[in-house]
């Protein structure tokens, strides 16, 4: 059973996404900011990370880079409202495997996960 780390500062969204993924048979762990995400990644080694960008303490782009520094093979999908061209480019250049703009369609997220987990 694949383990997904859901990172978002909005509790409402973490709960929604978790329910969605657990319903599809995934195991879900949560983190509410980039720093806690980095710690959770190191401790629990999830298969994929769903990463928000706008968060307190440490934003998602910084967390992406930190996680890749710890594990160069880390699979991180950005899941954010911040869909500006410069941001997408930065994320992909920094090593994100995919970039989903909120508001998202359920199928887009599930499809992206399946592609990475295979």
């Amino acid at each position: 059973m694949a383990k997904i780390l859901v990172v978002d500062d909005a509790e409402f969204l973490r709960v929604r996404i978790s329910k969605m993924l657990v319903g599809d048979g995934y195991e879900v762990i949560e983190a509410e900011n980039g720093l806690l995400a980095l710690n959770a990644y190191k401790a629990q080694k999830p298969d994929v990370v769903l990463m928000d960008i706008t968060m307190p303490e440490m934003d998602g782009l910084t967390a992406l880079r930190e996680i890749l520094a710890v594990d160069s093979g880390a699979k991180v999908i950005m899941l954010t409202a911040l869909g500006q061209e410069s941001v997408v480019l930065e994320a992909i250049k920094s090593g994100a495997k995919d970039f989903i703009v909120k508001p998202f369609e359920r199928d887009r997220v599930v499809g992206a996960l399946q592609k990475l987990i295979g």
Partner: peptide, 24 residues
């Protein structure tokens, strides 16, 4: 907490959409 979080996300998506447009 949960209710404020839902509103927070509404604000995030709405506000960011506006900013994305201005940025582009």
């Amino acid at each position: 907490k949960m209710e404020k979080s839902a509103l927070q996300e509404l604000g995030n998506i709405t506000g960011t959409y506006f900013l994305n447009y201005v940025s582009d």
